[in-house]
Amino acid sequence: MDVLAVLSVAVRGALGPEAAIYALAAIGLNIHFGYTGLLNFGQVGFMLVGAYGTAISVLSFDAPLWAGVLVGMACAVVLALILGIPTLRLRGDYLAIATIAAAEVLRYLYRSSFAEPVTGGVFGLVQFAGEFYAVNPYTAPLELGPLRFNERALWLMTVAWGITFLAAGLVWLLVHSPWGRVLRAVREDEDAARSLGKNVFAYKMQALVLGGVLGALAGSLLAINSQAITPDAFIPIITFYLWTIMILGGASRVLGPILGSIVFWFLLTFLDAFLRGAMSAGWIPGFLLAPSDIGAVRFAAVGLGLMLLMVFRPAGLIGNQKELRLDVR
């Protein structure tokens, strides 16, 4: 097995567009959970409406791609309102269940046969982001030792990481303002914030909308990245990935989701490449694990990782362990 090749695949995974996209969606989740304490387990639903908002605008309404992205974000605002109005007044665990259910409702709806004329049903939609690749300024691939990124990947990485860092900057500005202070107060104790004249519901709603819009933006980028989307790409496991990324990096840290995503994708692609390499080298007997099981191993590893993280290092890589211990809920 070529260790260098496995490592370079892992580094590609850590720096590639997917890592940036997941970081962006996790930044949105961080606004929800890290700063406001909202248990949103339907972030993938926001990604879904973002992706489909973009693709449908382009394919069905001949809108330019940028307008499609805006439509996707607008859909996220509507979804946040529909979801937030009934659930934001309730205890946190209701929001968790309602959001995961809502994301599944959306997936069922988009893949249903009667939505097929618009959404393409289970087959999804393809080829809607030509405009994006038409303006690619890169003309040659980038080669750094064993690492190689082609023009297409470079262009995507530039845009995705650019947007992700812009979003992180936005979050930094927000949480270091009095607005962010109210958000953190809501996370600590809603009633205390209320007793000081803060409209808790409005702040929670603003946070839900804002984080959801970032999720939708990530969904749009995901759609542009693959040029093909199907509803079944937006399953609840994506949300669990995002939670793992956020907690791994450190919830309520501005750079937590970005660091988390880079490390997460490094480990995930490393595991993947390592297993494949080990199997082809005959290190793992076939009766124990078949190549088709690698996907399942990967998910199981994420689950185990999430458990171990939450038990042993809930503040993540750059979180303040002392601060977290104060959490008495």
């Binding site: 953190r184 107060a185 009633d191 104060l326």
Partner: peptide, 8 residues
Amino acid sequence: LTKALTRL
């Protein structure tokens, strides 16, 4: 029961 905002 005092509601100090513990992580502020």
